[in-house]
Design a binder for these strands. Sequence first.
DNA 1: CCTTGACCTTCCAGTTACTGGAAGCCTTAC
DNA 2: GTAAGGCTTCCAGTAACTGGAAGGTCAAGG
Lengths: 134, 134
Amino acid sequence: MNIKDVARRSGLAAKTIRYYEEIGLVRAARGSNGYRVFQEAELHKLAFIARARSLGFSIDDCRALLGLYEDRNRASANVKELAKGHLDCIDRKLAELQAMRSTLARLIEQCSGDHRPDCPILEDLAGQDPARRS
Amino acid sequence: MNIKDVARRSGLAAKTIRYYEEIGLVRAARGSNGYRVFQEAELHKLAFIARARSLGFSIDDCRALLGLYEDRNRASANVKELAKGHLDCIDRKLAELQAMRSTLARLIEQCSGDHRPDCPILEDLAGQDPARRS
DNA sequence: CCTTGACCTTCCAGTTACTGGAAGCCTTAC
DNA sequence: GTAAGGCTTCCAGTAACTGGAAGGTCAAGG
């Protein structure tokens, strides 16, 4: 398999696959012409990584997850712990975004959005109305 | 005011303020010793930026918002439009994170998290159980 | 006057995870 | 033979800082 087929089947961009090889996340054999040649096993790894990335795991997490996946003596506790850490991270981001969202939505609602310069959004940013700040 | 006072009063790191100056977001006068000297006006701008950043606006958005803030002939419609665009962006991120969260939480629940290697999380990543995928 | 510690300066490198583009070789089909 | 499309490497850029090194400045204490 050449890189484009792997890209199509894994859902990753060819560039991304080259990048993953560069940082040592996967390996690729080379044909006599210098082209990368992929076996099913590498495709499988790449699909694994693509799935993990789509769940928001960092590249470092992916590396660890791949290591655990390939370790027949792993304890699922280790996987679970890693996943929980990531879940906490997601929850923190969610809380932050939700806080932003609610403040922003309130400000947008208050803004008439017409030709006049008066604007509660700018007033809030300028700190002119600290009482209303969430 | 020296940079550290401005940092304290704006809530930004001194490094960040230097960076904002470097990219032309704010200006700072210099004393005879080469130190940056800030007036209240610049502090105010920096606090404005800090607040906008805390609502998730990008640096480019901050630049635009500052421009609008300083334009006495602005139309609040322009501010509102910018803010709405950002709100949409936040909503997209929220949806993405929530999707990740729900899948991840489900997988974590299913994982016994003990010394054994069997792990629904890894199985999902490996695509061994596509039916259960969210 | 000297020293010490807390400031301040600039500059360079690193972070995350790619992405775009240039220059150039390889393959396949017509 | 040539044109299209795929492959290669390498370099640069993205966002928004952050850390650290090397070195100048300032105020207080002895």
